[in-house]
Design a protein around this nucleic acid. Sequence first.
DNA 1: ACACTTCGCTTAACCGTTTTACTACTTAAT
DNA 2: ATTAAGTAGTAAAACGGTTAAGCGAAGTGT
Lengths: 339, 339
Amino acid sequence: MQVTIKQVAQRAGVSVATVSYVLNGTGTVTDETRQRVLDAVAELNYQPRYAARSMRGRSRTLGVTLSTLPGRLAEPALTEVLAGVADAAVLRGYFLLLATANADQDETELCLSLARTRRVDGLVLLDMLVDDPRAQALAGAGIPHVCAGPPPAGIDSPSVAIDMHTAAVDAVRHLLGLGHRRIGLIQLPSELAVSDLIVEGYRQALTEAGLPFDPTLVIESGRTEEDGYQAMTELLASPKPPTAVLAGSDELAFGAMHALNDACLIVGRDVSLVGFDDLPQAAHVNPPLTTMRQPRRVQGQQLTMLLDDVILKRNTSLRTVTLSARLIVRRSSGPAPVS
Amino acid sequence: MQVTIKQVAQRAGVSVATVSYVLNGTGTVTDETRQRVLDAVAELNYQPRYAARSMRGRSRTLGVTLSTLPGRLAEPALTEVLAGVADAAVLRGYFLLLATANADQDETELCLSLARTRRVDGLVLLDMLVDDPRAQALAGAGIPHVCAGPPPAGIDSPSVAIDMHTAAVDAVRHLLGLGHRRIGLIQLPSELAVSDLIVEGYRQALTEAGLPFDPTLVIESGRTEEDGYQAMTELLASPKPPTAVLAGSDELAFGAMHALNDACLIVGRDVSLVGFDDLPQAAHVNPPLTTMRQPRRVQGQQLTMLLDDVILKRNTSLRTVTLSARLIVRRSSGPAPVS
DNA sequence: ACACTTCGCTTAACCGTTTTACTACTTAAT
DNA sequence: ATTAAGTAGTAAAACGGTTAAGCGAAGTGT
């Protein structure tokens, strides 16, 4: 059988309340009594049951939901954020509950359900969509949550976002500076909130340079390497293929790089390639990938801390954190070839 | 305020017990009463509180612990297994609790604590070590758990392991078949349970071919790409560098590949390289990596199902599942250069 | 010397479910 | 007609903690 607070109390010769007070540091207890209790706790190896404890008060758990898609956890960009979330969670004394949506319950319902059953104190929303239904529902129900990316228009959910617009501008400027004039864009799925921001930045940088916006150079793709491969193949098949390509993520860029290899084009000489993320692998592919480094790990940490603030209703003036991406130049981008 | 079972009972004009019976399908209830209850539940949008519910019975949560090392979640090999664990967990009706060890509590204590506080019904042990202390402690305390890899000697914890010995033999045979005679090994940290198995397989395959075991060709490394880079650099610096190298993981192989690139050696021609895992990226590096595909996702799924069986004390004759790795030949391995 | 606080602890209420024990009513069998 | 055996429900006791309220003993100010 499990050891309960009652047994500890009996052994220490005090009431259960006193044990609880000692363990939580709440009541007023003599040093001598405290010691007796602590001894009893140690001898019996007592640990309070979580369910009983959280019947009153918080569950000390943060929720992270995943869509039905199997294998979401295997995506590096997502796990980088998650790693940050997890690292900060332990510092703030939270556990992390990972819940996957299924056929009977979509992700929004899952979020609501986790909160309503008090399984979690708050939720971290990864992978924000345009008009994200999760954020809308949670904001509507007054459930603590934070968004990893821009919250939907009209909803003022706390968020930690990376300024993707500026990042895209910087990336394109880099390519313009290298003399490129035909610059392609392999876009993340347009339902993602970041997708539009990147396109807008791309567009702005071109306009600044007096270049027209050519829709045939922009391809909406998926999120996997495979998707990047196909998108690049498509770009190469066009009558006037680009001399440089910006990919919406490193994963897409890796796929694109593979397609360029298969087409016997040398990346960084024949075609320049810029990614988005700076995953650990980015430095180790051949050639090493020029990319906009996103501080994903930091984003995750900040998300957790912000969520903790929201849960504890701390007066946080700063409910919208914006981080910047930074251009990391490697060998996948080089001067435009002389035509 | 939260809606409770009492309010539902009141609205349906029945006792709380009846509501509970309806919701759990336990007692005997008229169809008419059942409907009244279900209506009330729907109208009030009632969801039973998790803490109260799990005071009796199980917590319907599986635990996964991570070591103190920040960013463990960003390791692709680990997240592949985790993705499998998560995918199967939702099918069996479990949530996943992700807990990180910290300064006051090492991973073993964390595991024990999660079980004793009844926060989880069972634990999945990833990243098995030689004589893994977690498995020893959990087996000793009779706590349900499963090991992703071989359990420590003398402990018969249920496990889902991949036959790394045979896999290593197959990998080396592949290289031998291509004519290689000096084959290096970049080894995972020797504290990992898989590490020894790979070395043994490597050794056996060499012996079969009548080749001597040369300790200078075996380098114990870490687990990151950076570690692989350094190990490869070290191998290249030796007086007689190998013409082929087997790496203990794809990550190590990626790092090794990078080192070979930097040394202006062409992978697959000058030096052959074989990895271990077949991560999604493996097909997309340049050149694509020959590797021993490990069914990590499946391993994760089986881990969850096996753990569920253990928790429910189902009569599982099969408490030790062994999966096989499969050689995937790509372009990073080729015929030995004529010397 | 008296009322008033503070200290250190206990008793008991409470949290929201599940489950046990029991009751009133029907139906079936003797 | 009487008893046995379901049926459909209720009231109350767990479950294992936290916390509010209460209560003597000791200290304090007048």
